[in-house]
């Protein structure tokens, strides 16, 4: 599998713009790994096709979660081998990581909805914002009687509200 294309990646991006333009992209997955939503605002470099990209992102989160749980020094509970199936909510989880070029914030609801927001590396704590996005998802998607649960979200109203909200926070 190819992770990086031939082009050079700059070591770190310029300082964040005042606000409104620092969100790169968002993913929403359900427990079955279906990508319910993908939106991008600012993504100059693409190395994989969309489906592979979604799969890679989901796989990254899944593995990272079992790694963080495995490494947890505080939990006395019996831990299985790395990669053992976990019960939902079992073990600990991470909420963000930062590289020199971006920051990835992550939240997972007990119902298995995963929300991933990729922003400028200097964005602050986005945990509350992700919860807010979860609330938007509930109001605009889940409560829409004509939306089929588990299917990709095609809802203009949700998209516009989301765009607006992300512009406000990052």
């Amino acid at each position: 599998m190819q992770f990086f294309g031939g082009s050079e990646i700059s070591p770190s991006p310029p300082a964040p713009a005042a606000s409104g333009n620092n969100g790169h992209m968002i993913y929403v997955f359900n427990r079955n790994g279906v990508c319910l939503l993908y939106r991008e605002w600012n993504r100059p470099l693409r190395t994989l096709d969309a489906q592979q990209d979604h799969k890679l992102m989901f796989g990254l989160l899944f593995s990272l979660k079992s790694l963080t749980a495995k490494m947890d020094p505080t939990s006395a509970a019996e831990k299985g081998n790395l990669g053992m199936p976990q019960l939902p909510g079992q073990g600990c989880s991470f909420h963000s990581f930062r590289t020199n070029t971006y920051k990835l914030s992550f939240m997972e609801s007990p119902s298995g909805i995963k929300i991933i927001l990729v922003t400028h590396p200097r964005t602050g704590d986005l945990r509350e914002s992700l919860k807010r996005i979860y609330n938007l998802y509930v109001d605009y998607v889940v409560k829409n009687p004509l939306y089929t649960p588990g299917s990709p979200i095609r809802c203009e109203l949700f998209n516009t509200t989301l765009d607006q909200y992300v512009r406000g926070i990052a």
Binding site: S109, P110, S111, I113, K131, Y134, N135, Y137, V138, V142, K143, P149
Partner: peptide, 10 residues
């Protein structure tokens, strides 16, 4: 299956 998300969110 929908209500659970509203419940968790609120």
């Amino acid at each position: 299956i929908r209500l659970i998300d509203e419940f968790l969110a609120k």
